[in-house]
Structures are given as C-alpha cells and as structure tokens.
Nucleic acid binder design. Sequence first.
DNA 1: AAAAACATTTGATGTAGGTCAAAAAGTATG
DNA 2: CATACTTTTTGACCTACATCAAATGTTTTT
Lengths: 206, 206
Amino acid sequence: MVKSHSQPSLSGIPEPHSESMTGIDLPFFHILAPASREAFLQSVQMVRFPRNHFIFQPEQIARHAYFVLKGAIRQFTLADGKEVVTRLVIEGGFSTAFYSFISQKPCFEYCQTLEEVEAISLSRREMERLCAEHIDIANLERKITEQYLIQEQERALSLQFLSAQERYEQLFKQDASILLRFPLGTIASYLGMSQETLSRLRAKNI
Amino acid sequence: MVKSHSQPSLSGIPEPHSESMTGIDLPFFHILAPASREAFLQSVQMVRFPRNHFIFQPEQIARHAYFVLKGAIRQFTLADGKEVVTRLVIEGGFSTAFYSFISQKPCFEYCQTLEEVEAISLSRREMERLCAEHIDIANLERKITEQYLIQEQERALSLQFLSAQERYEQLFKQDASILLRFPLGTIASYLGMSQETLSRLRAKNI
DNA sequence: AAAAACATTTGATGTAGGTCAAAAAGTATG
DNA sequence: CATACTTTTTGACCTACATCAAATGTTTTT
C-alpha cells in the first residue's frame, strides 16, 4: 500500500468553499416537480476541490456523491502497490465510491482530483430523505442508477472479451474527450492494460 | 452469428403457464406497505419455462424482468461466433437483458434456461407504473438496481486486474453454488477465460 | 447396452500483452 | 535557461493464457 501522489490533502470533508445553490439549472432538473426541485436545491451544496485533492480514501465512508460541473477526477484502488483505475469522471458525470456510497461501508478506492473541481454535493443521508419524500426524485435516482448499471456492464463485457486494441478503439469512439483529459498511464490502467501497450497501440494507429 | 443450441423455443412471450400469485411471499416484500404489496401482486405473474428455452434473443426487446424462484439461466452474446457469457442466474436472482429492459431498445444477448425455470415476471411497463404510483416500490427498485450496479462493478474490476486463477478463486469463495449448477465451459466464459484454462486451474487446486 | 452426442481433460504449440530497463520528450522549478 | 522531475516511447525478453487437436469421461438416445 504505497501512496505515490504528491501532496494529497486528506480531509475528505468538503467544507471550505461551499456556496448557495440558488438559480442553478441541472440537466436532469426539468423532470422534477417544482416542490421536488426546491427540496433538492435545499439539500445540495456547491463544493470546490483543489487540484490533486483526495476526496475519498480507503477506510473512509463515501457519505457524498458529486455531480461534476468542472474539472476531472480519477478513482483507483491499490492492488499489490499498483494503481488500478476504476473510473474517470469529467464534467457531467457523477463521482463517488459507489460501493461505499450505496452500502455506507468503508470504501476501498481513492478518489482524486486531477484538476480543480467544481461539483454539486449530495449526501447519502439527504438523498435517502429526498427519495423517501419525493417520488419523482426516487425515480430520477433510479434512472441514474440504471444508466450507471448499463455503463458498468459494458465495461465488464469489454474487459471480458475485447483485445487491448479493441478496448482502446471503443473508448476512442465513445468518449474521445476522456483521452485528452487524463495522462496515458491512467487511461491504460482504466482500460486494463499496461502503459507501454497503450503507447504502442497509439503509435500504430497514428 | 451462428446458433449452436438444440431446439430453442423462440416465442419469448411467457404465456403458457402463467398462474395466479395470491399468497406468494417474496424476500423483499416486508419493506412494502400493504397497498403497494397488493398493487405489486396485481402486476406480476408466475411463469414457467421449459429446459433449454430462449427467453430472449438479440433484436428482441426485453419487456420483462424475471425473479427466479427455481431453475438456472445463462445469458450470453455471440462475438465472432463465440459465446460470451454475461450473467448466470439461479434461485433468488433477477434475469433480464438489463440494457434492453432499461432502455427498451433491442437487446444484444441471449437468455437461455438450462433447467426448467419458475419465475415471477414483471413487465417494464408495469414496473414504471408501479414506480410512478408507489414511492416505496420506486425505492425498492432503486435499491435492487444499486445492488446490481455494485455487482457489475466488482465483475469489471476482477476482469480488469485479477489473474484467471484469482478470478476462479473469487467466484469459488463468493458463490460456490454457481459452480455446481453450470457446465464448466459456461463458467469459464463467464470468468473471461477458456474452458481449458479453467479445467487446468481446477485440476491444480484439486 | 451400443451408439451418438456432449463435456471435460490433457498435451503441444503460439501469441498478446506483461515486465524491465533505458532513451526521449515534455513540463515544471529555482 | 538550466536542472530536475514526470510522462511517454522504444526495445528486448518473458509468461499467462489462448488455440488446436486428440484422448477420456459422461450423459442421452435408440
């Protein structure tokens, strides 16, 4: 268990820059009834994390999920001292340690900002309260979870039977913007291959 | 796209043996309010599929999800004529082509019974209706989806960085009963390795 | 119970992609 | 702008696992 990152800030508790949310307009907002929208806004906060900040670390419980408005986050675990990247998040995506956020048990992954991040934060506790009181929020959360289920399923499938080359091409087609935002080693790990292999693939395909 | 299975029955529409559901007690039932429980029972049906029946096939839309009470199901796709097993379901699990069920777009997987199957069937349409009307059902479905999200995430992670040996051991620990219900080739494919490799692993570990 | 069909094992061989090491390119810092 | 640090590339070599093929074992059918 080696930490190989420069100056991690370890708090994990995003207090410093929290701001009012009045007037924010989110992509999934139009689905909600006005009352639900109002309640939702009451429950979330704007947060800002500096570059290279660790939002979560193993052993902590992921009490919040973040909807990223700006910046880039990578999530990873350590396996025999090697980083295994589990998720890459940029604008428009949710970042949290899903297992921990869902079960409220200690997480096993790191969640690190690579750029300054601006996000909307919702705690699991508030999420449960909102879902218990607002049926449209419960269904919105259900739909979002469904989308992530599909995404994880696709990821598993591509790791199961695509070659390194094919996995790279797939990411290139689906999400080329990701390739520009993260260092090569990070993308390689996310794709389940070594850095050297990804570098060679890239050279071959120009 | 080669079909390599004996006598698939292709209907996909489970009419033959549907039965009344009065008095059924499901594991997740106690969470629901009596009214929701009642509505739920009104919406589901008991179905039975014979051995080697294809519940779904590619191009079809998965209009139902099945909660398996008895029997075993394997789901797979064909990639260059080779079967890639995506999901193994026995008693207590849900079987559906998640992508298709969620999006109501054509599915890409086969869903085949290996034994006679007895299941509770819920259509996507009814599910949406129930979730729109009963907040506790919406939250129950959310929780179930969350569990499957975690499961898929674990599967992706193990395919990403565990060796064939380790993946086998993990399945052995977590779900040994699966190993007894499905043929070796099916399990090997599910674990992302060749049949021969799994056979050799098993021989080594006695 | 013999024949056919299917599932598993075992052996020989090939290869995609891993690891290690060093060079080259790019970026940050005093 | 020169030094240090990080990231990416390139090359040589190696290994885990795939593929192919044949033998053995097991279940189903007649």
